[in-house]
Simulated assay, not measured.
Amino acid sequence: MSTHPPETLPQSLPIAAILEKRPSISRWADAYWTATGVIVGERSEPNATLLHTSNGIAQYLYPGLTARLHLDECESYYHNLKAPYPSGYIVASLAADGTPTPYHFTLSFDEANSYLQGSAQVYPVPLPPELYGWVEAYVLEHYAPELRKKRRLTDINDKGH
């Protein structure tokens, strides 16, 4: 199916998440956190690093995440790639003060939804081109969508005979 030999396609890639802290307009929270993207590749800094601040908005880089591909998630990857806005999902736990700590990254909407049903915070991010190409090659190598079959129309006067 694919022109990529299986041995050239890595099963995982290192990821760093970029999260943004903004002042909150709510009286119940001091800050509002969002994810703005991911960077593919190893990072030398082991902990969260402040990247930029401006007008009370701060961006942080969280290294140490890994994108992994699993055969049983191929259908979810396929639907993600066909979505109007293909996404990756950063999964984080929240500290008592609302500060997120990312601990997982997935390309599967189904897996992200499972975390969301639990107590995790899930941040969708746009899929960068290098991740899109990697997932696309994996799906082409390992997945073929099933063709839908039309149901045969039955005559309403037919009593099943």
Rank of each mutant, 00 (worst) to 15 (best):
L61V: 14
T106N: 00
Y32Q: 08
E75Q: 13
Y62I: 02
H70K: 14
E136M: 08
P46R: 13
I90C: 03
G88E: 01
A31C: 13
E146C: 09
S76D: 09
E45A: 12
K159V: 12
V40I: 14
Y78N: 06
P102L: 06
S76M: 02
G133S: 13
D97R: 10
L147Q: 13
R22L: 09
A67V: 01
L116D: 11
C74V: 05
R148S: 15
I156W: 13
Y103E: 12
E20I: 07
P23I: 03
Y123S: 10
P5Y: 07
A48C: 08
S119V: 06
H70F: 15
L127P: 03
W33S: 07
S2L: 08
L13S: 07
A31M: 05
P124W: 01
I57E: 08
Q121Y: 09
P129Y: 00
T3D: 15
A17S: 06
G88H: 00
V135K: 02
E42M: 02
E42H: 09
T106E: 00
L131F: 12
Q117M: 13
P129C: 03
K159N: 15
S76C: 05
E141G: 07
G41S: 11
T8C: 07
P6T: 00
Q59D: 11
N55D: 14
G41A: 11
A67C: 02
T3W: 04
I15G: 02
I18K: 10
R152M: 14
Y138C: 01
L116V: 08
A29V: 11
V135N: 00
W134S: 07
A92W: 02
L19V: 13
N80P: 06
C74G: 01
E141N: 13
Y89S: 00
A144S: 10
A67Q: 01
E136D: 15
A144F: 08
N55P: 05
K21Q: 12
L81S: 04
E20F: 04
L116F: 12
N80R: 01
Q121E: 13
A58H: 09
S24R: 04
Y62A: 00
W134A: 05
A16V: 03
S2Q: 04
A92T: 02
R27C: 09
E45G: 08
A144H: 10
R68W: 01
L50W: 07
G64M: 10
W134H: 13
G56M: 08
E7N: 03
S44W: 11
Q121D: 12
V40S: 07
N55L: 14
Q117W: 07
W134P: 05
A67K: 00
S114T: 08
P14N: 05
S54D: 13
A35Q: 00
D155A: 13
P23H: 06
A144K: 02
Y115V: 06
L153M: 14
Y143A: 01
D110G: 12
Y32H: 14
D72M: 08
V122H: 07
P46H: 11
D155G: 03
T154H: 11
V40C: 06
L9W: 00
I156G: 10
G41M: 03
P128I: 06
Y132V: 15
I156L: 13
E146Y: 11
H70N: 12
A83T: 06
I15A: 03
A137Q: 08
G98E: 12
K149S: 10
L131Y: 02
E130F: 05
P86K: 03
T8M: 04
Y60G: 01
L19W: 09
E141S: 15
L65G: 03
V122F: 06
E42Y: 04
A31N: 15
